[in-house]
Amino acid sequence: MAERKRVLITGGAGFLGSHLCDRFIAEDYHVIAMDNLITGDLKNIEHLFKLEQFEFYHHDVSKFVFVPGHLDYILHFASPASPIDYLRIPIQTLKVGSLGTHNLLGLAKEKKARILIASTSEVYGDPEVHPQIEEYWGNVNPVGPRGCYDEAKRFQEAITMAYHMHHGLETRIVRIFNTYGPRMRLNDGRVLPAFMSQALRGEELSIFGDGSQTRSFCYVDDLVEGIYRLLLSDYALPVNIGNPDEITIKQFAEEICQLTGVELKLGYQQLPENDPQKRRPDITKAKEILGWEPKISRSEGLEKTLIYFNEFLKVTSNNKEYIN
């Protein structure tokens, strides 16, 4: 029997990281999840602890990273990803994108492993090109409140390409657009969990600005499929992975209220500084190089997510932390 391939997934207890752990377990890999739990939650991966092909390391990748044994692949998903988190811990966000990425690239070089870096559509900033193509360099304010996240990801891409060009390291870069699904935190500040939790509690849905800004939402299973294909591809430059089905924030609020069966009540608030007005991926490269495009419609994905949130609220009905 052939030995299982080994993959290290940083941020493995987070929303996306935990779904990646599930996927690689399903593909019969030996999975090593690493997380400092600053935004991740062990509940996301507790169902894997009983498996002999799963390990968990409680560790901050901004510090020296050691993993015994060989590694075939590294997926670097350790980073706060929502404004409520990276505005609260901007220094840690910058460190995980810079020092953490440097540490993991060094580990990949030592282990002769292929490494996939999780970048983001936020590298495009408030874009002047729409939809966003990978060749667009972006419109980012490096000293604004979002700079800690945006520039951490831009540096992450730069150092990854430097390792690829200078050391010949096998690297992959995925630019992730808005993604949703089970295991999102209700209080993480992103659009979908905010709207869904507010609707389920009968509150006004918070609209920042006039609600005309757009987003494109991809269901997590589709995203994981795209990431998996990119990892196993031969393409080293960044690739957009997301759903190009674009919708305004106000229209999205209407969809959430219709889905949850509550009356539409909107509360308008000031638009945050440097908030992107448009967000839609051009996925031509993903289609041509990976043979990938999203399969799950927004209506189907939202129904799956609502089931998760309803179950979560039942379990936490006596615990009010989720509304903080």
Rank of each mutant, 00 (worst) to 15 (best):
R6A: 07
G11L: 02
G11T: 01
G14L: 02
G17Q: 00
G17E: 00
S18R: 03
C21L: 03
R23L: 05
I25S: 10
Y29S: 07
N36M: 08
I38S: 14
N44R: 06
N44K: 04
K50T: 14
L51P: 07
F54T: 12
F56L: 15
H58M: 14
K63C: 12
F66R: 06
Y73S: 01
P80Q: 10
A81V: 11
I84C: 11
D85P: 05
I89W: 08
I91H: 08
T93N: 11
L99W: 12
G100D: 01
G100L: 04
T101N: 05
N103M: 09
L104Q: 07
L105P: 00
K109V: 12
E110W: 12
A113H: 05
A113D: 07
R114N: 10
I115D: 00
L116R: 01
S119M: 04
T120L: 04
Y124T: 00
P131D: 10
E135H: 10
G138S: 06
P142N: 02
Q156W: 04
A162F: 15
Y163I: 08
H164A: 13
T171I: 11
I176M: 09
I176C: 09
F177W: 05
G181W: 04
P182K: 15
L186R: 06
M196F: 10
M196E: 02
S197A: 13
Q198K: 11
F208G: 03
F208T: 06
Q213L: 12
Y219G: 07
Y219E: 01
D221V: 12
V224T: 11
V224Y: 14
E225Y: 10
Y235A: 08
A236I: 05
V239H: 01
G242E: 05
T248R: 12
T248E: 08
I249C: 04
F252D: 02
F252G: 03
I256A: 04
L264A: 10
L264M: 11
G267H: 06
G267V: 06
Y268F: 14
Q269L: 14
Q270Y: 07
P272L: 10
E273L: 15
D275A: 15
K278Y: 13
R279H: 13
R280F: 03
R280W: 07
D282W: 09
I283V: 05
I283H: 02
I283T: 01
A286K: 02
A286I: 13
A286G: 07
L290C: 09
W292P: 00
P294F: 06
S299P: 00
L302R: 00
K304R: 14
T305H: 11
L306E: 07
I307K: 15
I307V: 15
I307R: 10
F309N: 01
E311W: 11
F312Y: 15
K314D: 08
K314G: 01
V315Q: 11
N319S: 03
N319G: 08
E321K: 11
I323K: 13
I323G: 05
N324A: 06
